[in-house]
Amino acid sequence: MPRIAGTSGARISKPSAAPAGATIAIYSVKGGVGKTTLAANLAWFAASLSGHRALLWDLDAAGGSGFLYGLEPKDSRLAEDVLLGERPPSRLIRKTSCSGVDVLPADESIRALDARLVRIGKRKRLARMTAQLAADYDRILLDCPPVMNELSAQVVRAADLVIVPLPPSPLSSRAFDLVLREIAGNTKRHPPILPVISMLDMRRALHRQVQEEHPNWPAIPYASVVEQCAVRQQPVGAIAPRSPAARQFAMLWHAIEMKLAGRG
């Protein structure tokens, strides 16, 4: 296992109260916030630091999560069928080169998924599917599209924790407020929410100000090694395990496990 800077090469122990088969949604109503990069990296850290079996479920038709693990899309349109219960998830799940990480990829068929979910009236379809997948996976990470519709409503009903990536900007603050309203409007008892400052550049005054205003929010730096994830199609922990970015991802994963255990 790659040694992560600041962790002495040791795995982060699983908190005893952390639920088995927890579903973690990485969600924002705003695009371009680093959502897919965050989801793909967290799946790797779930497996590498906590020893979990992790499933990265891509719900965004752009299919970025599979790409970041070097998985080329197959010539099929089955992702919608899986979500509609017409095919088993095992038909699409693919193993990655990273031990413990599988991907349930997206394809263009889910572009019209929202309308079909509304028509069939199954408001907890995604929650039931993640509960079934929890028999095989310790952590299920949902890479969510930047939408406010029936699919996003199903995401927040299924999630045990919602991660909201927020680049330091006034628009991100507005997007966070929209996420809070979306969650509150679609759940009776909403899941815990963990805002994460993404693409933090401490050379910029606004970024420093945002971090000073929210010192307890985890932060992922704007760094070339994070951009290299897309170029090399591997997570930060695999390509640069001793980098500051890898250390921040490890700290974020520990914060997530603490949240799931009810101690964060």
Rank of each mutant, 00 (worst) to 15 (best):
A159Y: 06
D201W: 10
A175M: 07
L126A: 04
P165F: 03
K124W: 12
R123W: 11
D138K: 08
V164R: 00
Q154L: 04
K124Q: 13
L141F: 12
P165V: 02
P192D: 04
A131V: 07
L206E: 11
P146K: 05
V147I: 11
V156Y: 03
L206S: 13
I183R: 00
L161D: 00
M148E: 15
S172I: 03
D138A: 08
P167M: 06
L151G: 00
R139P: 08
L200D: 00
L180S: 03
Y137G: 01
Q132F: 11
Q154H: 12
A158L: 09
T187E: 08
E182N: 13
S198L: 08
D136P: 07
H207Q: 07
C144T: 07
P146F: 06
S173K: 11
D138M: 07
D138C: 10
F176L: 07
D136Q: 15
L151H: 02
R204F: 11
A127L: 13
Y137V: 07
L194T: 02
T130A: 05
I140C: 04
R208E: 08
R128G: 10
V156C: 11
H207L: 04
L161P: 00
M199V: 09
R125P: 07
Q132W: 12
P170M: 04
M202A: 12
D201T: 09
A127T: 13
M199F: 09
Q132M: 15
R123M: 13
K188Q: 15
D143T: 09
R174K: 12
A153K: 08
D136S: 14
L180W: 02
L171G: 06
R174C: 09
V210E: 10
M148V: 13
R119S: 14
Y137Q: 07
L178Y: 08
L133M: 14
R157Y: 02
D201E: 10
Q209W: 11
L171A: 11
A184G: 14
D143L: 08
A159R: 01
M202W: 08
I120G: 06
G121A: 15
D136T: 15
A205R: 13
V156P: 01
M129W: 03
L141V: 14
L166C: 09
R204I: 12
C144A: 03
I193A: 01
H190F: 14
A158D: 04
L133Q: 06
I120C: 13
R174Q: 12
P146E: 07
L142C: 05
G185W: 06
M202E: 13
L171Y: 11
I193S: 01
R123C: 06
D138Y: 08
G185M: 11
L206M: 13
S172V: 04
L166K: 02
P170A: 06
L126G: 04
Q132V: 12
H190R: 14
Y137E: 01
A127R: 15
Q209G: 13
P195T: 05
A205L: 13
M129S: 03
I193R: 00
V164E: 02
V118Y: 10
V156K: 03
S172R: 01
A175K: 00
V118D: 10
R189H: 14
L133I: 09
L151V: 13
R125W: 12
V118I: 15
L141A: 05
L126Q: 07
G121M: 13
Q154I: 07
R139W: 04
V156S: 03
V156L: 04
A175C: 07
Q132S: 15
M202K: 10
D160M: 09
S198F: 02
P165S: 06
L151P: 06
M148L: 15
H190M: 15
I183Q: 02
L194W: 01
D177G: 13
M148R: 14
